[in-house]
Amino acid sequence: MTPLEILAIGILFAGLGFFVAGTVGMLRFPDVFSRLHALTKADNLGLALIALGTALLTADTSVTLKLMLIWFFVVLASATSGHLIARHALRSGQGS
């Protein structure tokens, strides 16, 4: 196992940790807005780390660029979705 692979595995585990935290947060938190908080944090950072780990393991520039594009998309999508869901919950009074 080359040192690069060990680093990549470490990063992947960290990313996994964020995902687990996000999921547990989503299950435990009392209302919609705090769950949204947990979820958007988790998947942005979690996914960033896993994408970084994958990029390290497949040392191929086109794959790395594609991974960055995917991460950029997910960040954008989850920010917009988080906003839209919060707005919808606020307006229809289901939040609390």
Partner: peptide, 27 residues
Amino acid sequence: GPSEADRMLAAQLLGTTTVALLMLMSV
């Protein structure tokens, strides 16, 4: 999830987790 917003945000997280899982599977 009691409210619709809860279900939707859970679906959103599942989507992102699936993206992460696909990344690992590609390796």
